[in-house]
Design a binder for these strands. Structure first.
Length: 138
RNA sequence: GCGGAGGGCCGGACGGUCGCUCCGGUCGGGGAAACCUGGCCGGGGAGGAAAGUCCGGACUCCCCGAAGCAACGGUGCCGGGUAACGCCCGGGCAGGGCAACCUGACGGAAAGCGCCACAGAGAACAGACCACCGCCGGUUCGCCGGCGGCCAGGGUGAAACGGUGGGGUAAGAGCCCACCGGGGCGGUGGCAACACGGCCCGCAUGGCAAGCCCCACCGGGAGCAAUGCCGCAUAGGGACCCCGCGCGGGCUGAUCCUUUCGGGGAUAUCGCCGCAGGGCCGCUUCGGCCCGAGGGGUCCGGGUUGGCAGCAGGAGCCGGAUCGCGAGGUCCGGCCAAGAUGAAUGAUCGUCUGGGGCGGGUCCGCCCGCCCGACACAGAAUCCGGCUUACAGGCCCUCCGCGCGA
RNA sequence: GCGGGCAUGGUGAAAUGGUAUCACACGAGCCUUCCAAGCUCUUGGUGCGGGUUCGAUUCCCGCUGCCCGCU
Protein backbone atom coordinates (compact mmCIF):
# COMPACT_ATOMS: atom_id res chain seq x y z
CA UNK A 1 0.00 0.00 0.00
CA UNK A 2 1.52 3.30 -1.05
CA UNK A 3 -1.15 6.01 -0.72
CA UNK A 4 0.64 9.12 -1.91
CA UNK A 5 -2.42 11.24 -2.42
CA UNK A 6 -4.88 10.11 0.21
CA UNK A 7 -6.25 13.16 2.04
CA UNK A 8 -5.16 11.80 5.44
CA UNK A 9 -8.41 11.30 7.33
CA UNK A 10 -6.66 11.14 10.70
CA UNK A 11 -8.78 14.01 12.03
CA UNK A 12 -12.08 12.31 12.55
CA UNK A 13 -14.02 15.54 12.40
CA UNK A 14 -13.46 17.19 9.07
CA UNK A 15 -15.48 20.39 9.26
CA UNK A 16 -15.78 20.75 5.49
CA UNK A 17 -18.63 18.34 5.14
CA UNK A 18 -19.41 19.42 1.64
CA UNK A 19 -17.99 16.17 0.30
CA UNK A 20 -19.15 13.92 3.09
CA UNK A 21 -18.38 10.75 1.19
CA UNK A 22 -14.72 11.64 1.01
CA UNK A 23 -14.05 10.98 4.67
CA UNK A 24 -16.33 7.96 5.03
CA UNK A 25 -14.41 4.72 5.07
CA UNK A 26 -14.35 2.88 1.76
CA UNK A 27 -15.83 -0.59 1.78
CA UNK A 28 -14.34 -3.43 -0.20
CA UNK A 29 -15.05 -7.14 -0.27
CA UNK A 30 -12.89 -9.98 0.95
CA UNK A 31 -12.04 -12.35 -1.85
CA UNK A 32 -9.12 -14.40 -0.67
CA UNK A 33 -9.52 -17.60 1.23
CA UNK A 34 -6.66 -16.71 3.57
CA UNK A 35 -8.53 -13.60 4.74
CA UNK A 36 -11.60 -15.67 5.51
CA UNK A 37 -9.51 -18.11 7.52
CA UNK A 38 -7.93 -15.24 9.50
CA UNK A 39 -11.36 -13.85 10.29
CA UNK A 40 -12.55 -17.28 11.37
CA UNK A 41 -9.88 -17.32 14.10
CA UNK A 42 -11.01 -13.91 15.38
CA UNK A 43 -13.88 -12.98 17.70
CA UNK A 44 -17.36 -13.99 16.60
CA UNK A 45 -20.91 -13.19 17.60
CA UNK A 46 -23.89 -15.33 16.69
CA UNK A 47 -27.42 -14.06 16.24
CA UNK A 48 -30.64 -15.70 15.26
CA UNK A 49 -30.13 -15.10 11.56
CA UNK A 50 -26.37 -15.02 11.08
CA UNK A 51 -22.90 -15.42 12.52
CA UNK A 52 -20.60 -12.38 12.41
CA UNK A 53 -16.84 -12.55 12.69
CA UNK A 54 -14.83 -9.37 13.17
CA UNK A 55 -11.15 -8.59 13.53
CA UNK A 56 -9.01 -5.48 13.60
CA UNK A 57 -6.88 -5.76 10.51
CA UNK A 58 -5.06 -2.44 10.21
CA UNK A 59 -6.07 0.22 12.71
CA UNK A 60 -4.85 3.17 10.65
CA UNK A 61 -6.50 2.41 7.33
CA UNK A 62 -9.82 3.96 6.35
CA UNK A 63 -10.96 0.70 4.77
CA UNK A 64 -13.67 -1.66 5.95
CA UNK A 65 -13.63 -5.08 4.32
CA UNK A 66 -16.67 -7.29 4.17
CA UNK A 67 -16.92 -10.98 3.40
CA UNK A 68 -20.00 -13.12 2.92
CA UNK A 69 -20.04 -16.88 3.00
CA UNK A 70 -22.53 -19.71 3.08
CA UNK A 71 -21.59 -23.35 3.29
CA UNK A 72 -23.47 -26.17 1.66
CA UNK A 73 -25.33 -26.65 4.90
CA UNK A 74 -27.36 -23.54 4.01
CA UNK A 75 -28.90 -25.34 1.03
CA UNK A 76 -28.59 -25.52 -2.70
CA UNK A 77 -27.11 -22.83 -4.91
CA UNK A 78 -30.30 -20.77 -4.99
CA UNK A 79 -30.60 -20.72 -1.22
CA UNK A 80 -26.94 -19.86 -0.74
CA UNK A 81 -27.01 -17.00 -3.24
CA UNK A 82 -30.20 -15.60 -1.75
CA UNK A 83 -28.78 -15.65 1.75
CA UNK A 84 -25.62 -13.87 0.63
CA UNK A 85 -27.60 -11.22 -1.23
CA UNK A 86 -29.73 -10.40 1.79
CA UNK A 87 -26.63 -10.22 3.96
CA UNK A 88 -25.00 -7.90 1.42
CA UNK A 89 -28.05 -5.64 1.34
CA UNK A 90 -28.26 -5.46 5.12
CA UNK A 91 -24.52 -4.90 5.51
CA UNK A 92 -24.54 -2.07 2.99
CA UNK A 93 -26.96 -0.14 5.18
CA UNK A 94 -25.72 -1.13 8.63
CA UNK A 95 -21.96 -1.28 8.20
CA UNK A 96 -21.79 2.12 6.52
CA UNK A 97 -23.16 3.54 9.74
CA UNK A 98 -21.69 1.34 12.48
CA UNK A 99 -18.65 -0.21 10.89
CA UNK A 100 -15.22 0.81 12.12
CA UNK A 101 -12.36 1.56 9.73
CA UNK A 102 -9.56 -0.95 9.64
CA UNK A 103 -11.83 -3.86 10.51
CA UNK A 104 -12.67 -7.03 8.60
CA UNK A 105 -16.15 -8.43 8.99
CA UNK A 106 -17.30 -11.81 7.74
CA UNK A 107 -21.03 -12.58 7.69
CA UNK A 108 -22.05 -16.22 7.62
CA UNK A 109 -25.55 -17.26 6.60
CA UNK A 110 -27.71 -19.85 8.30
CA UNK A 111 -30.04 -22.36 6.77
CA UNK A 112 -33.58 -21.03 6.12
CA UNK A 113 -33.37 -18.27 8.75
CA UNK A 114 -31.18 -15.88 6.80
CA UNK A 115 -33.46 -16.05 3.79
CA UNK A 116 -36.77 -15.84 5.67
CA UNK A 117 -36.19 -13.46 8.58
CA UNK A 118 -37.86 -10.05 8.18
CA UNK A 119 -35.48 -7.50 6.76
CA UNK A 120 -35.65 -5.11 9.73
CA UNK A 121 -34.86 -7.94 12.11
CA UNK A 122 -31.95 -8.94 9.90
CA UNK A 123 -30.53 -5.43 10.15
CA UNK A 124 -30.98 -5.24 13.92
CA UNK A 125 -29.31 -8.62 14.29
CA UNK A 126 -26.29 -7.29 12.44
CA UNK A 127 -26.24 -4.06 14.44
CA UNK A 128 -26.40 -6.03 17.70
CA UNK A 129 -23.52 -8.25 16.61
CA UNK A 130 -21.38 -5.25 15.68
CA UNK A 131 -22.00 -3.64 19.05
CA UNK A 132 -21.00 -6.80 20.85
CA UNK A 133 -17.81 -7.22 18.82
CA UNK A 134 -16.78 -3.61 19.22
CA UNK A 135 -17.52 -3.69 22.93
CA UNK A 136 -15.39 -6.77 23.49
CA UNK A 137 -12.53 -5.31 21.45
CA UNK A 138 -12.07 -2.42 23.86
C1' G B 1 -71.69 -35.09 -17.86
C1' C B 2 -68.14 -38.73 -15.77
C1' G B 3 -63.59 -41.31 -16.52
C1' G B 4 -59.25 -41.76 -19.50
C1' A B 5 -55.12 -41.27 -23.60
C1' G B 6 -51.65 -38.31 -26.53
C1' G B 7 -49.29 -33.66 -27.95
C1' G B 8 -47.96 -28.44 -27.37
C1' C B 9 -47.33 -23.98 -24.32
C1' C B 10 -46.87 -20.71 -19.95
C1' G B 11 -44.57 -21.08 -15.47
C1' G B 12 -46.52 -13.73 -12.74
C1' A B 13 -47.64 -8.18 -14.45
C1' C B 14 -46.91 -2.89 -13.50
C1' G B 15 -44.60 0.94 -10.61
C1' G B 16 -41.61 3.66 -6.51
C1' U B 17 -36.74 3.87 -3.39
C1' C B 18 -31.73 1.98 -2.78
C1' G B 19 -27.91 -1.19 -5.17
C1' C B 20 -24.61 -4.94 -8.59
C1' U B 21 -22.29 -6.19 -13.34
C1' C B 22 -21.23 -5.48 -18.68
C1' C B 23 -21.44 -2.27 -23.15
C1' G B 24 -21.77 2.65 -25.45
C1' G B 25 -21.61 7.99 -24.92
C1' U B 26 -20.16 12.26 -22.16
C1' C B 27 -17.82 15.20 -18.32
C1' G B 28 -13.91 15.28 -14.80
C1' G B 29 -9.40 13.83 -11.25
C1' G B 30 -4.27 11.65 -11.06
C1' G B 31 -0.03 10.60 -14.32
C1' A B 32 5.52 12.33 -18.67
C1' A B 33 3.10 8.19 -20.93
C1' A B 34 1.02 3.42 -20.94
C1' C B 35 -2.81 3.55 -17.89
C1' C B 36 -5.59 4.07 -13.20
C1' U B 37 -9.97 6.17 -11.07
C1' G B 38 -14.84 8.86 -10.35
C1' G B 39 -19.72 11.33 -11.69
C1' C B 40 -23.93 11.60 -15.14
C1' C B 41 -27.03 9.72 -19.33
C1' G B 42 -28.79 5.59 -22.35
C1' G B 43 -29.02 0.31 -23.13
C1' G B 44 -28.36 -5.35 -22.02
C1' G B 45 -28.60 -8.80 -17.76
C1' A B 46 -30.71 -16.78 -15.87
C1' G B 47 -33.80 -21.76 -17.26
C1' G B 48 -37.31 -25.25 -19.07
C1' A B 49 -34.82 -27.84 -16.91
C1' A B 50 -29.43 -23.12 -16.40
C1' A B 51 -29.43 -29.32 -12.60
C1' G B 52 -27.34 -34.60 -13.00
C1' U B 53 -22.73 -34.89 -16.15
C1' C B 54 -25.28 -40.14 -18.97
C1' C B 55 -24.22 -39.93 -24.56
C1' G B 56 -22.88 -37.13 -29.23
C1' G B 57 -20.17 -33.04 -31.45
C1' A B 58 -17.62 -28.12 -32.19
C1' C B 59 -12.95 -26.07 -30.40
C1' U B 60 -7.79 -26.60 -28.33
C1' C B 61 -3.30 -29.32 -26.90
C1' C B 62 -0.71 -34.20 -27.08
C1' C B 63 0.24 -38.42 -30.19
C1' C B 64 0.45 -37.06 -35.13
C1' G B 65 3.21 -42.21 -41.27
C1' A B 66 0.43 -45.92 -44.69
C1' A B 67 -1.91 -50.72 -45.18
C1' G B 68 -3.45 -55.07 -42.82
C1' C B 69 -4.15 -57.62 -38.21
C1' A B 70 -4.95 -57.93 -33.08
C1' A B 71 -6.55 -56.00 -28.40
C1' C B 72 -9.98 -52.84 -25.64
C1' G B 73 -14.64 -50.12 -25.25
C1' G B 74 -19.49 -49.12 -27.13
C1' U B 75 -23.99 -49.92 -30.07
C1' G B 76 -27.59 -53.95 -31.68
C1' C B 77 -35.42 -55.59 -35.37
C1' C B 78 -35.83 -52.65 -40.42
C1' G B 79 -35.79 -48.02 -43.16
C1' G B 80 -35.05 -42.84 -42.79
C1' G B 81 -33.45 -37.85 -40.33
C1' U B 82 -28.91 -35.47 -38.63
C1' A B 83 -22.55 -32.46 -38.12
C1' A B 84 -22.98 -36.72 -34.95
C1' C B 85 -25.38 -39.81 -31.35
C1' G B 86 -26.87 -44.78 -27.23
C1' C B 87 -31.23 -39.20 -29.84
C1' C B 88 -35.63 -38.42 -33.04
C1' C B 89 -39.36 -40.01 -36.94
C1' G B 90 -41.91 -43.85 -39.71
C1' G B 91 -42.68 -49.10 -40.11
C1' G B 92 -42.45 -54.40 -38.32
C1' C B 93 -42.83 -57.98 -34.35
C1' A B 94 -43.93 -59.22 -29.09
C1' G B 95 -46.58 -57.99 -24.45
C1' G B 96 -50.57 -54.99 -21.86
C1' G B 97 -55.38 -52.27 -22.28
C1' C B 98 -62.79 -52.73 -24.08
C1' A B 99 -60.40 -48.48 -26.66
C1' A B 100 -57.62 -43.94 -27.59
C1' C B 101 -52.86 -45.66 -26.67
C1' C B 102 -48.66 -47.49 -23.82
C1' U B 103 -44.19 -50.57 -22.99
C1' G B 104 -39.94 -53.35 -25.10
C1' A B 105 -31.02 -53.69 -24.57
C1' C B 106 -35.89 -56.62 -29.95
C1' G B 107 -29.01 -59.76 -33.92
C1' G B 108 -27.05 -64.99 -33.23
C1' A B 109 -28.37 -70.71 -28.53
C1' A B 110 -27.92 -77.11 -35.11
C1' A B 111 -19.55 -71.78 -34.21
C1' G B 112 -17.82 -73.27 -29.66
C1' C B 113 -17.16 -73.14 -24.13
C1' G B 114 -19.66 -72.54 -19.47
C1' C B 115 -23.88 -72.57 -15.86
C1' C B 116 -28.91 -74.49 -14.61
C1' A B 117 -28.62 -74.58 -6.80
C1' C B 118 -32.74 -77.24 -3.89
C1' A B 119 -36.30 -80.83 -5.22
C1' G B 120 -36.75 -84.78 -8.63
C1' A B 121 -36.14 -91.30 -11.78
C1' G B 122 -34.01 -87.89 -15.06
C1' A B 123 -31.61 -80.89 -16.13
C1' A B 124 -29.51 -81.51 -21.82
C1' C B 125 -26.04 -87.16 -24.66
C1' A B 126 -30.74 -88.97 -24.37
C1' G B 127 -31.15 -93.23 -22.22
C1' A B 128 -30.88 -95.81 -17.48
C1' C B 129 -34.39 -96.56 -12.96
C1' C B 130 -39.35 -97.29 -10.79
C1' A B 131 -43.89 -98.59 -12.42
C1' C B 132 -47.26 -100.75 -16.45
C1' C B 133 -48.90 -104.83 -20.12
C1' G B 134 -48.69 -109.89 -22.37
C1' C B 135 -46.79 -114.97 -22.20
C1' C B 136 -44.26 -118.97 -19.46
C1' G B 137 -42.76 -121.11 -14.76
C1' G B 138 -43.06 -121.09 -9.42
C1' U B 139 -46.34 -119.71 -5.37
C1' U B 140 -46.34 -120.52 2.14
C1' C B 141 -51.39 -117.22 -3.14
C1' G B 142 -48.94 -111.20 -0.24
C1' C B 143 -46.13 -112.09 -4.68
C1' C B 144 -41.38 -113.84 -7.01
C1' G B 145 -38.25 -115.23 -11.39
C1' G B 146 -37.42 -115.43 -16.87
C1' C B 147 -38.57 -113.64 -21.91
C1' G B 148 -40.84 -109.84 -24.86
C1' G B 149 -43.20 -104.69 -25.50
C1' C B 150 -39.91 -99.65 -24.15
C1' C B 151 -44.86 -96.19 -25.15
C1' A B 152 -47.92 -93.39 -21.94
C1' G B 153 -47.38 -92.54 -16.22
C1' G B 154 -43.68 -91.35 -11.93
C1' G B 155 -45.10 -86.68 -5.50
C1' U B 156 -41.01 -82.71 -8.06
C1' G B 157 -39.40 -78.19 -10.45
C1' A B 158 -38.70 -71.77 -13.16
C1' A B 159 -38.05 -75.29 -17.00
C1' A B 160 -39.14 -82.48 -18.43
C1' C B 161 -37.79 -84.44 -26.04
C1' G B 162 -44.56 -81.33 -28.94
C1' G B 163 -50.32 -80.02 -27.07
C1' U B 164 -55.87 -81.25 -27.35
C1' G B 165 -59.49 -84.72 -29.14
C1' G B 166 -60.51 -89.30 -31.66
C1' G B 167 -59.14 -94.03 -33.75
C1' G B 168 -56.17 -98.12 -32.71
C1' U B 169 -54.02 -101.98 -29.31
C1' A B 170 -52.86 -107.38 -24.92
C1' A B 171 -51.48 -102.56 -22.73
C1' G B 172 -49.75 -98.50 -25.32
C1' A B 173 -47.07 -94.83 -28.17
C1' G B 174 -47.30 -89.52 -34.41
C1' C B 175 -48.58 -96.03 -34.60
C1' C B 176 -52.75 -93.47 -37.66
C1' C B 177 -56.23 -89.04 -38.36
C1' A B 178 -58.14 -83.65 -37.47
C1' C B 179 -56.78 -78.91 -35.46
C1' C B 180 -52.83 -76.07 -33.13
C1' G B 181 -47.44 -75.79 -32.74
C1' G B 182 -42.51 -76.89 -35.30
C1' G B 183 -38.96 -77.68 -39.50
C1' G B 184 -37.71 -77.52 -44.86
C1' C B 185 -38.54 -75.81 -50.00
C1' G B 186 -39.93 -72.55 -53.42
C1' G B 187 -43.98 -68.32 -54.53
C1' U B 188 -46.44 -63.32 -53.96
C1' G B 189 -46.27 -58.23 -51.70
C1' G B 190 -42.60 -54.93 -49.46
C1' C B 191 -36.11 -51.06 -50.31
C1' A B 192 -36.09 -53.98 -45.73
C1' A B 193 -37.59 -55.87 -40.91
C1' C B 194 -41.66 -58.88 -42.03
C1' A B 195 -46.50 -60.52 -43.68
C1' C B 196 -49.66 -63.80 -46.60
C1' G B 197 -51.01 -68.15 -48.77
C1' G B 198 -48.95 -73.20 -51.21
C1' C B 199 -46.35 -77.95 -51.11
C1' C B 200 -43.50 -81.48 -48.37
C1' C B 201 -41.74 -83.76 -43.53
C1' G B 202 -44.99 -87.17 -38.17
C1' C B 203 -41.58 -84.20 -36.34
C1' A B 204 -34.36 -85.18 -33.50
C1' U B 205 -31.84 -81.01 -31.41
C1' G B 206 -34.64 -76.51 -23.69
C1' G B 207 -33.21 -71.71 -20.98
C1' C B 208 -29.35 -68.00 -19.93
C1' A B 209 -25.47 -64.02 -24.57
C1' A B 210 -27.68 -57.09 -18.98
C1' G B 211 -22.07 -65.33 -18.60
C1' C B 212 -17.58 -65.87 -21.92
C1' C B 213 -18.37 -65.44 -26.92
C1' C B 214 -19.72 -65.05 -32.60
C1' C B 215 -21.46 -61.52 -36.37
C1' A B 216 -22.25 -56.40 -38.20
C1' C B 217 -21.17 -51.29 -37.43
C1' C B 218 -18.64 -47.24 -34.74
C1' G B 219 -14.46 -45.38 -31.82
C1' G B 220 -6.77 -42.24 -30.99
C1' G B 221 -5.84 -39.63 -25.67
C1' A B 222 -6.99 -35.54 -22.64
C1' G B 223 -9.98 -31.66 -21.58
C1' C B 224 -11.60 -24.13 -21.42
C1' A B 225 -8.58 -25.37 -14.28
C1' A B 226 -7.79 -27.24 -22.45
C1' U B 227 -4.58 -23.80 -24.82
C1' G B 228 -1.79 -19.09 -26.23
C1' C B 229 0.42 -14.38 -24.73
C1' C B 230 1.99 -10.85 -20.84
C1' G B 231 3.56 -9.91 -15.90
C1' C B 232 5.71 -11.61 -11.29
C1' A B 233 8.79 -15.09 -8.74
C1' U B 234 12.48 -18.85 -8.47
C1' A B 235 16.29 -21.18 -11.02
C1' G B 236 19.91 -22.04 -14.60
C1' G B 237 19.42 -26.09 -8.50
C1' G B 238 20.72 -30.25 -4.62
C1' A B 239 20.83 -35.63 -2.82
C1' C B 240 20.46 -40.84 -3.91
C1' C B 241 19.79 -45.14 -7.21
C1' C B 242 19.99 -47.91 -12.12
C1' C B 243 22.02 -48.50 -17.13
C1' G B 244 25.96 -46.56 -20.14
C1' C B 245 30.33 -43.57 -21.56
C1' G B 246 32.46 -48.40 -28.14
C1' C B 247 35.06 -47.48 -33.05
C1' G B 248 36.75 -44.25 -36.88
C1' G B 249 38.00 -39.21 -39.21
C1' G B 250 42.10 -34.74 -37.67
C1' C B 251 38.12 -31.99 -39.02
C1' U B 252 41.38 -26.66 -36.88
C1' G B 253 36.43 -24.37 -34.12
C1' A B 254 38.85 -24.45 -29.23
C1' U B 255 43.23 -26.64 -26.63
C1' C B 256 48.41 -28.27 -26.56
C1' C B 257 53.43 -28.58 -28.95
C1' U B 258 56.50 -26.28 -32.52
C1' U B 259 57.70 -22.23 -35.88
C1' U B 260 62.11 -19.38 -40.43
C1' C B 261 55.49 -16.69 -38.54
C1' G B 262 53.58 -18.51 -44.28
C1' G B 263 52.61 -22.78 -41.61
C1' G B 264 53.42 -27.83 -39.59
C1' G B 265 52.21 -31.54 -35.92
C1' A B 266 49.30 -34.00 -31.72
C1' U B 267 44.21 -35.87 -30.56
C1' A B 268 44.24 -36.96 -23.83
C1' U B 269 40.14 -33.08 -23.04
C1' C B 270 35.74 -29.66 -25.08
C1' G B 271 33.20 -29.26 -29.76
C1' C B 272 32.00 -31.37 -35.01
C1' C B 273 31.08 -35.44 -38.64
C1' G B 274 30.30 -40.68 -39.76
C1' C B 275 29.48 -45.71 -38.09
C1' A B 276 28.38 -49.34 -34.53
C1' G B 277 24.92 -49.55 -30.60
C1' G B 278 20.42 -48.38 -27.78
C1' G B 279 15.32 -46.68 -27.42
C1' C B 280 10.33 -45.37 -29.37
C1' C B 281 6.12 -45.46 -32.90
C1' G B 282 0.35 -51.71 -29.86
C1' C B 283 2.01 -56.06 -33.65
C1' U B 284 3.93 -57.32 -38.90
C1' U B 285 5.98 -55.19 -43.59
C1' C B 286 7.78 -50.90 -45.61
C1' G B 287 9.06 -46.47 -43.37
C1' G B 288 10.10 -42.72 -39.77
C1' C B 289 11.82 -40.29 -35.22
C1' C B 290 15.03 -39.66 -30.89
C1' C B 291 19.63 -40.53 -28.05
C1' G B 292 24.44 -41.28 -29.63
C1' A B 293 27.68 -39.73 -24.00
C1' G B 294 24.46 -39.20 -21.72
C1' G B 295 19.63 -41.29 -20.51
C1' G B 296 15.95 -42.79 -16.87
C1' G B 297 13.72 -42.96 -11.89
C1' U B 298 12.76 -41.33 -6.66
C1' C B 299 13.08 -37.55 -3.08
C1' C B 300 14.31 -32.48 -1.36
C1' G B 301 14.22 -27.23 -2.33
C1' G B 302 11.69 -23.06 -5.07
C1' G B 303 7.40 -21.08 -7.69
C1' U B 304 2.17 -21.30 -8.39
C1' U B 305 -2.51 -14.71 -5.36
C1' G B 306 -2.40 -11.97 -11.06
C1' G B 307 -3.87 -9.65 -16.25
C1' C B 308 -5.51 -10.43 -21.44
C1' A B 309 -7.16 -13.69 -25.21
C1' G B 310 -10.05 -18.28 -25.71
C1' C B 311 -15.55 -15.81 -24.69
C1' A B 312 -20.42 -14.93 -26.84
C1' G B 313 -22.65 -14.09 -34.77
C1' G B 314 -23.99 -19.70 -33.63
C1' A B 315 -25.28 -26.97 -36.73
C1' G B 316 -28.33 -19.11 -33.59
C1' C B 317 -33.54 -17.05 -32.97
C1' C B 318 -38.32 -15.34 -35.21
C1' G B 319 -41.77 -15.18 -39.39
C1' G B 320 -43.31 -16.83 -44.26
C1' A B 321 -43.21 -20.04 -48.65
C1' U B 322 -42.29 -24.91 -50.37
C1' C B 323 -41.03 -30.51 -50.36
C1' G B 324 -41.97 -34.71 -47.07
C1' C B 325 -46.99 -39.19 -43.55
C1' G B 326 -43.13 -37.49 -40.06
C1' A B 327 -38.30 -36.46 -37.80
C1' G B 328 -36.56 -32.85 -40.97
C1' G B 329 -34.66 -30.45 -45.72
C1' U B 330 -34.45 -26.09 -49.13
C1' C B 331 -35.37 -20.89 -50.17
C1' C B 332 -36.68 -15.76 -48.79
C1' G B 333 -37.09 -11.76 -45.20
C1' G B 334 -36.02 -9.79 -40.41
C1' C B 335 -33.19 -9.79 -35.64
C1' C B 336 -28.52 -9.78 -32.37
C1' A B 337 -30.10 -12.09 -27.48
C1' A B 338 -26.10 -12.54 -20.14
C1' G B 339 -20.76 -12.90 -19.81
C1' A B 340 -19.65 -13.14 -13.83
C1' U B 341 -14.69 -15.12 -11.55
C1' G B 342 -15.58 -15.47 -2.88
C1' A B 343 -18.57 -15.51 -8.76
C1' A B 344 -23.29 -9.86 -10.98
C1' U B 345 -28.69 -10.39 -12.75
C1' G B 346 -30.54 -8.18 -6.23
C1' A B 347 -32.90 -5.86 -1.43
C1' U B 348 -37.35 -3.62 0.08
C1' C B 349 -42.27 -1.40 -0.47
C1' G B 350 -46.98 -0.63 -3.02
C1' U B 351 -51.15 -1.80 -6.59
C1' C B 352 -53.09 -5.81 -9.29
C1' U B 353 -54.59 -10.30 -10.97
C1' G B 354 -53.55 -16.44 -11.30
C1' G B 355 -54.77 -18.82 -7.20
C1' G B 356 -55.80 -20.32 -1.84
C1' G B 357 -58.75 -20.15 2.93
C1' C B 358 -63.36 -19.08 5.83
C1' G B 359 -68.65 -18.04 5.98
C1' G B 360 -73.48 -17.63 3.65
C1' G B 361 -77.03 -18.45 -0.31
C1' U B 362 -78.34 -21.93 -4.20
C1' C B 363 -82.62 -23.14 -9.65
C1' C B 364 -76.91 -26.87 -7.42
C1' G B 365 -74.30 -24.84 -13.76
C1' C B 366 -72.98 -21.02 -9.81
C1' C B 367 -73.41 -16.31 -6.96
C1' C B 368 -72.18 -12.92 -2.75
C1' G B 369 -69.06 -11.15 1.42
C1' C B 370 -64.39 -11.15 4.21
C1' C B 371 -59.19 -12.51 4.64
C1' C B 372 -54.23 -14.15 2.67
C1' G B 373 -51.63 -12.81 -1.52
C1' A B 374 -47.05 -15.12 -6.13
C1' C B 375 -45.88 -19.55 -3.38
C1' A B 376 -43.17 -25.16 -7.60
C1' C B 377 -38.40 -27.19 -9.10
C1' A B 378 -34.46 -24.41 -9.19
C1' G B 379 -29.09 -19.96 -10.58
C1' A B 380 -25.54 -19.45 -16.58
C1' A B 381 -19.47 -20.58 -15.77
C1' U B 382 -16.39 -22.51 -23.38
C1' C B 383 -20.54 -23.42 -26.61
C1' C B 384 -24.17 -26.48 -29.15
C1' G B 385 -27.62 -31.36 -30.22
C1' G B 386 -29.99 -35.02 -27.09
C1' C B 387 -31.19 -38.11 -22.79
C1' U B 388 -32.36 -38.49 -17.60
C1' U B 389 -34.09 -36.47 -13.12
C1' A B 390 -37.07 -32.38 -10.19
C1' C B 391 -41.47 -29.25 -10.58
C1' A B 392 -47.01 -25.28 -7.09
C1' G B 393 -50.42 -23.92 -10.45
C1' G B 394 -52.59 -22.91 -15.18
C1' C B 395 -53.92 -22.69 -20.64
C1' C B 396 -54.78 -24.81 -25.65
C1' C B 397 -55.56 -28.79 -29.34
C1' U B 398 -56.73 -33.84 -30.84
C1' C B 399 -58.64 -38.59 -29.60
C1' C B 400 -61.07 -42.98 -26.75
C1' G B 401 -64.79 -45.53 -23.40
C1' C B 402 -69.48 -45.15 -20.76
C1' G B 403 -74.14 -42.51 -19.76
C1' C B 404 -78.05 -38.89 -21.17
C1' G B 405 -80.61 -35.73 -24.88
C1' A B 406 -81.85 -34.27 -30.10
C1' G C 1 -16.66 -25.93 -13.75
C1' C C 2 -14.25 -30.62 -15.42
C1' G C 3 -12.69 -35.61 -14.30
C1' G C 4 -12.44 -40.21 -11.18
C1' G C 5 -13.94 -43.65 -7.19
C1' C C 6 -16.91 -45.88 -3.16
C1' A C 7 -21.51 -47.57 -0.58
C1' U C 8 -22.59 -55.00 3.03
C1' G C 9 -24.85 -55.75 11.04
C1' G C 10 -23.13 -50.34 15.67
C1' U C 11 -17.53 -50.43 13.51
C1' G C 12 -13.88 -52.62 10.16
C1' A C 13 -13.68 -56.16 6.37
C1' A C 14 -15.12 -61.20 2.99
C1' A C 15 -18.65 -63.55 -0.47
C1' U C 16 -17.71 -68.75 -8.85
C1' G C 17 -25.45 -65.61 -10.10
C1' G C 18 -27.76 -70.40 -5.59
C1' U C 19 -28.67 -70.55 2.89
C1' A C 20 -25.01 -63.39 3.12
C1' U C 21 -19.40 -65.05 6.28
C1' C C 22 -15.52 -63.30 9.93
C1' A C 23 -13.52 -60.20 13.89
C1' C C 24 -14.56 -56.50 17.50
C1' A C 25 -18.79 -54.25 19.88
C1' C C 26 -24.03 -54.89 22.25
C1' G C 27 -27.26 -58.39 25.19
C1' A C 28 -27.92 -63.13 28.04
C1' G C 29 -25.68 -67.28 30.48
C1' C C 30 -21.30 -70.22 32.54
C1' C C 31 -16.77 -69.49 35.29
C1' U C 32 -14.98 -66.05 39.69
C1' U C 33 -15.96 -63.86 46.51
C1' C C 34 -16.23 -59.49 42.76
C1' C C 35 -14.08 -57.32 38.13
C1' A C 36 -11.23 -58.37 33.80
C1' A C 37 -9.90 -62.30 30.60
C1' G C 38 -11.87 -66.94 28.73
C1' C C 39 -16.10 -70.23 27.02
C1' U C 40 -21.31 -70.82 25.10
C1' C C 41 -25.66 -68.73 22.97
C1' U C 42 -28.63 -64.76 20.88
C1' U C 43 -29.98 -60.02 18.35
C1' G C 44 -28.91 -57.23 14.19
C1' G C 45 -27.22 -56.04 7.60
C1' U C 46 -26.51 -55.75 1.17
C1' G C 47 -28.02 -47.00 0.30
C1' C C 48 -32.98 -46.23 -2.76
C1' G C 49 -36.13 -47.41 -7.23
C1' G C 50 -36.60 -50.29 -11.62
C1' G C 51 -34.91 -54.18 -15.23
C1' U C 52 -32.44 -59.15 -17.02
C1' U C 53 -32.83 -64.11 -14.77
C1' C C 54 -36.25 -69.68 -12.06
C1' G C 55 -33.21 -66.93 -8.62
C1' A C 56 -29.26 -60.54 -7.88
C1' U C 57 -24.65 -58.29 -2.64
C1' U C 58 -22.98 -59.86 -7.56
C1' C C 59 -25.10 -58.24 -14.17
C1' C C 60 -27.55 -53.56 -16.50
C1' C C 61 -30.09 -48.60 -16.02
C1' G C 62 -31.66 -44.31 -13.16
C1' C C 63 -31.46 -41.61 -8.47
C1' U C 64 -29.28 -40.43 -3.40
C1' G C 65 -25.18 -39.77 -0.18
C1' C C 66 -19.94 -39.62 0.70
C1' C C 67 -14.69 -39.25 -0.76
C1' C C 68 -10.56 -37.79 -4.05
C1' G C 69 -7.93 -35.11 -8.06
C1' C C 70 -7.17 -30.46 -11.25
C1' U C 71 -3.12 -24.82 -11.26
Amino acid sequence: MTPPKAPDPQDGTTPSAALSCADAPTITTIKRRADFLRAARADKQGTKSMLVQGRIRAPGEPVIRLGFTCSKKVGNAVARNRAKRRLRAAAREVVAELGRPGWDYVLIGKRDVTAERPYDALKSDLAYALHQLHGRAE
